[in-house]
């Protein structure tokens, strides 16, 4: 059975764990570096990126996570996308694995959090490809710029980028783990060797 880690320092890791179970994947909660052993991929959940970054530093996870990323697929949702990026325009611990520039809380405060339907062409291999993906944005970041070979997977009607991919790295501003739609998780698993 495929073993996929979920970084469990803080945030909605349990929601990702539940979806992985539904997809017949063995989820492993990761809080310490040695727990990355034998994993084939990793999901970094939503939460507070400052909290996740601080705890990753405190427990010696920053370098092991960067090392893990050289070999394995990693997907970050919201705070996880911020943590994966190489630039967030402020001083906080990040992994710097993806060539994306991210703006935190880009839509405003909680009162501006929203739901919207997205057309995501990359999900076209899914049998439900014609159905839009219902995306939930919570104090969400946007991906201001994709660089090098990173590319846009989804954008809002006003062109703001909300999902990107670079090789085996995936970043989404929104939270597929808060819905019952497993297509994004299935797409991520297709990137796992």
């Amino acid at each position: 059975m495929m073993k996929i880690g979920v970084l469990a320092l803080q945030g909605d890791f349990a929601e990702h764990v539940n979806i992985l179970k539904r997809l017949k994947v063995e989820p492993v909660e990761v809080r310490l570096p040695q727990q990355l052993k034998d994993l084939q991929g990793l999901i970094i959940p939503g939460g507070e990126s400052t909290t996740i970054g601080k705890l990753a530093g405190d427990f010696g996870l920053l370098e092991p996570l960067r090392e893990f990323g050289r070999q394995h697929a990693i997907w970050g949702t919201c705070a996880g996308a911020i943590f994966l990026s190489k630039d967030v325009r402020r001083d906080q611990p990040i992994l710097g694995l993806m060539d994306i520039l991210v703006q935190r809380n880009a839509f405003g405060r909680q009162v501006d959090s929203f739901e919207a339907d997205l057309i995501i062409p990359e999900l076209k291999n899914s049998p439900r490809s014609e159905i839009p993906f219902h995306a939930i944005f919570i104090r969400a970041p946007i991906i201001e710029k994709v660089e090098a070979d990173a590319r846009v997977l989804a954008a809002l009607p006003d062109k703001r980028i909300v999902a990107a991919q670079q090789g085996h790295f995936l970043a989404t501003s929104f939270h597929p783990e808060l819905t019952n739609d497993t297509r994004f998780h299935e797409y991520f698993l297709s990137l796992v060797d």
């Binding site: 469990a8 320092l9 803080q10 945030g11 909605d12 890791f13 349990a14 929601e15 939503g46 939460g47 507070e48 909290t51 919201c78 705070a79 909680q110 009162v111 501006d112 959090s113 929203f114 739901e115 919207a116 339907d117 839009p132 939930i136 944005f137 919570i138 104090r139 809002l156 009607p157 939270h175 808060l178």
Partner: peptide, 21 residues
């Protein structure tokens, strides 16, 4: 493609982001 704010899913969703904290 409407954007909806103030829904129960986004209200509950912020609390989900605070979990483990």
């Amino acid at each position: 493609m409407e954007q909806q704010t103030g829904t129960f899913a986004v209200k509950k969703g912020l609390a989900q982001m605070l979990k483990g904290g």
